[in-house]
Simulated assay, not measured.
Amino acid sequence: MENRKGTGKTALITGASSGIGQELAKLFAQDGYNLVLVARSVETLHRLAEVFELNYGTEQVTVIEKDLSEEDAARDVYEQVQAKGITVDVLVNDAGVGLHGKFATETDWEAEKSMVNLNVLTTTLLTKLYLRDMVARNEGRVLNLASLVSITPFPLMAVYAATKAYVNSLTQSLVNELKGTNVTVTALMPNATDTDFFNKAGAADVVATDMVDDPVMVAKDGYEALMSGKPKVVPGGLVNKAYEVMAYVAPQETMAGMMRYTLTPKHEIAQKVREQRPTIWAVGLGLAAVAVSGIFLATRHRQAALAE
């Protein structure tokens, strides 16, 4: 591939060692950005840096090894970048983790606390520190990884969904606060994606793992929305848009039942099908009806938007 001339701008990406974060880093590299890559897997980041320099002519890749679930990790990253004299033009808060299990009896508090530190505190402080600089320059972009579950209940990953609801709410509030500036904030709201997320969350065999989206597609849609200054984006086609519409119009208990199904281990579903086939068929038909209604509403919403 032909090397591209650098833009002179820099994107800082957390969680860049794999999944959506890695695909986003690739897109920035292809567009000539310098990079600051932050993750615990420093060897992976150095290999990525070599690939970007070779394939895209990336002029500068700074690697920072950091466990972002640690207290004050965000401030430490910010100060390291400042000490190197790097101006961050785009911040991507991609790093995040989940945890599977019943909140009351199965999940571990220390793991949940670490997740809140990473998904909420680090994301918030990095956003605050870099937005302050961006507003002072009147230029910059922030992409925060939310999720479709930021607008739905998510039984068996209750704390994870709550952290993403926080990220989404924070992002949409900042969109309003930043009106009149050249600084934008975008929430990326993907459906389940084919990354190592479920495995790390202790949910490698749940139903959702059979319904995952391509991280390349998710990153591409997120990147385009970020560069267009959109407040949010739900990657993928009409089905994912329908899920978003359903989250706003369907009863919360209905959504909770649907979402819990996606986090149920596949062997449990198979057992229930054998034991309660008529009930399962009734539930399936009910979920299908809700899905069709969501697709219909999403289509109407899209047609109305195009007509405006």
Rank of each mutant, 00 (worst) to 15 (best):
L306W: 10
T58M: 11
E59Y: 11
D76N: 07
T181G: 15
F198M: 09
E50N: 13
N93Y: 00
G8H: 10
D213Q: 15
V207P: 06
A25W: 08
Q30I: 08
V142R: 01
E224G: 03
A165S: 14
G6E: 14
P265W: 09
N191C: 06
L12A: 08
E224M: 05
I64Q: 03
A162L: 00
R141T: 04
T279L: 06
A161M: 02
D214I: 11
T87H: 13
V42Q: 15
L148K: 03
A16T: 09
G140L: 11
E177S: 14
A304I: 03
N117E: 10
A291C: 09
L226G: 08
V90K: 02
N199F: 09
Q172N: 12
V159S: 00
H100T: 10
L143W: 06
A146Q: 01
R47D: 11
Y261K: 00
V283C: 08
Y166R: 01
R274K: 14
Y248H: 13
E177A: 15
Y248Q: 13
A250K: 05
V273H: 06
R132G: 13
V36I: 13
L306E: 09
I295K: 13
F154Y: 05
Q276G: 08
K164T: 02
A256N: 01
M259I: 00
D213E: 15
K232Y: 13
I151C: 07
A307R: 14
L297V: 08
G96L: 00
K26D: 06
A291L: 09
V81S: 03
G180I: 05
V206I: 11
A203N: 10
N168I: 01
T184D: 12
D72A: 14
Y248V: 02
E71C: 12
P235D: 06
I86P: 15
E70K: 06
V216K: 12
I151K: 00
F103I: 08
F296C: 07
V207F: 13
K266E: 11
N191W: 03
V292I: 14
Q172R: 15
V90W: 01
L68F: 05
A305Q: 14
M211G: 03
A192D: 00
A187F: 05
T44E: 14
K241V: 15
Q303L: 15
V175M: 10
H46C: 03
V233E: 02
R277A: 11
L99N: 01
Y243M: 02
R302K: 13
G257Q: 11
L121D: 13
N55S: 12
V97Q: 00
G257F: 03
E268Q: 12
K66S: 13
A203M: 10
F197W: 10
V234R: 00
N55Q: 14
V63W: 08
G101P: 07
L35Q: 02
A291Q: 15
L131P: 04
A250Q: 01
A305K: 08
T10C: 12
A242K: 00
A242S: 08
V90F: 10
T184V: 09
F198A: 05
A288D: 07
N138Y: 04
R300Y: 04
N144P: 11
D76H: 02
T10I: 04
E65F: 02
V273K: 10
V77Q: 05
A256Y: 01
R141L: 10
V149M: 03
T10K: 01
A25H: 01
